[in-house]
Nucleic acid binder design. Structure first.
Lengths: 204, 204
DNA sequence: AGACTTATCTACCACTCGATACAAAACTTG
DNA sequence: CAAGTTTTGTATCGAGTGGTAGATAAGTCT
C-alpha cells in the first residue's frame, strides 16, 4: 500500500454521484455545494482527487464512456448494417429513459452552451459525441467493404444521421418523453436507414 | 405619448441582443453583466423593463417564437404532408446554421438542464419546442383528413420524429457542423418520412 | 411655470461561486 | 516509538452572482 492517510471515499462511487449531478443540472448548473453534498465529501478532498470542477467532469465523462462502451460493443457486433442501426437506436431509447439515471444523455444535458470560464466544456462534450459517430461510421464502412451495404451508400451520412437522432432523443427524453415515445422515434428512424441502405442513396 | 421620461433604448433591439447571449451561453451561463453589456443598458433598466432574468428570457423567447412564426407559416403552407416535412427540415438546416445567429436552436441551447433557482427554465423551453411539434401534428392530421396521408399513418409519430430531428440538428449545429452536414441529415430524414407516408406504418 | 410620472445612473446589498491555507488526523516506514 | 506522507475538516478567500435603494434626469400634465 502507498504511504499516507488512506482515502476515505470510493472514487468510482463518488464519480457516479457527480455524474448524476452534472447530468441533471448541466456543468454550469452544478455547483460545488451540490457536487460535494452528493459525493459525500468536502471541497478539499474533491480538489485533491480531481484537480478542479472541470477535471471532475472529465473524470465523470470517462466513467460515462466506460459504461456506454459495453453497450456500443454490443451495438457494433450487429451482423448487418441495418442490425447495427436497429441495435443502436433501441439501445438509445432504453438508456435515455432508464429510471436509474436522469433522463436524456449526459453528453447533451451536460452543457451545449456554457458561461464565461467554461467555454471549452461544450467542445469537450461534442468531441465525446463525435466518438460514437465515428464508431458507427467505421462500422458502416466495414459493412460496405463486406458488401452488406451498397457501394453508393454513404457511411458518414448514415452515421451522422443516427448520431443526430440520438441527440434529438436526448432532448426529447429530457423534456419528459416516455420510453414508448422514444421507441417510436427509433422505429421511424430505422425505416429511413433501411430505405437509404436499399437505395444506396436518397430519393429527391 | 405616455407620461414620464421616455425609454432611451429600443426594447426589441435590446431583446435581440439578449437573445443572442442566452443562445450562445445558455440561461445559467448568461450573466447579468454579459446581458447588460450586450443590451447596452444598466441593470436597473433591465429589471424595470423585464422584471427579472427569467422574465427577460421569456420575453426573448416570445420574440424568437415571433421570428420563427413566419417560417412555420411557410412550412405549414406546403401542399402535401411530404412537402411540409421537406420545407420543415430544410428550414431547420438553414436557420440552425445562419451565420447571423449563434449556431443551433435557442430552444435547445438555452438550457436543457439548469441549476438551483432555474429549475423551470428547461420546462419553459420544452413547452415552446412542443408547440412546433403540435403545429406539425395538427397539419398532418389535416393532411390525413384530406386523404393526402394514409389513414394508417400516425400524425403524432411523424410530428415527433421531425421534431426530434430538429432538436438533434440543433445539437449537431452547436458542435460546429456546417450547413451541408445538416442538409444531408435533412435529406436522409425526409426519406424516412416519405417511406412512412407511403406505407402508412413502419416495417419491422 | 410647477407638479407629476417614469427612466436612468451610481453605488451597493446579501449571497454564492470555484478554489485554497492551514492544522489536525490517519496511515506507512524507519 | 518518531519521522515522513497523504487526506481530512474548518474556515475562509477574492471574485462574481442576481437584484435593488435612492438620487437625478427627462419627459408629460395642468
Amino acid at each position: 500500500m502507498v504511504m499516507g492517510r488512506p482515502r476515505s471515499f470510493d472514487t468510482d462511487k463518488a464519480l457516479d454521484e457527480a455524474m448524476e449531478v452534472f447530468w441533471r443540472h448541466g456543468y454550469d448548473g452544478a455547483s460545488l455545494a451540490m457536487l460535494t453534498k452528493a459525493m459525500g465529501i468536502k471541497a478539499p478532498s474533491l480538489y485533491a482527487a480531481f484537480g478542479s470542477k472541470e477535471g471532475l467532469l472529465k473524470a465523470a465523462l470517462d466513467r460515462y464512456a466506460q459504461r456506454r462502451c459495453e453497450h456500443m460493443r454490443h451495438v457494433l457486433a450487429g451482423a448487418t448494417a441495418r442490425d447495427v442501426a436497429e441495435r443502436f437506436l433501441s439501445s438509445i431509447a432504453e438508456s435515455h429513459t432508464d429510471p436509474a439515471n436522469p433522463p436524456g444523455c449526459l453528453l447533451v444535458q451536460g452543457g451545449l452552451a456554457c458561461g464565461a470560464g467554461s467555454e471549452n466544456i461544450p467542445f469537450e462534450l461534442a468531441s465525446r459525441r463525435a466518438q460514437t459517430e465515428a464508431d458507427l461510421r467505421e462500422r458502416f464502412a466495414q459493412a460496405q467493404r463486406d458488401g452488406d451495404l451498397a457501394p453508393e451508400a454513404d457511411p458518414a451520412a448514415l452515421a451522422r444521421f443516427l448520431s443526430t437522432i440520438a441527440s434529438g432523443m436526448g432532448v426529447l427524453a429530457s423534456s419528459g418523453a416516455d420510453r414508448d415515445a422514444l421507441r417510436e422515434v427509433a422505429r421511424v428512424s430505422l425505416s429511413a436507414f433501411a430505405r437509404c441502405r436499399e437505395a444506396g442513396g436518397v430519393p429527391s
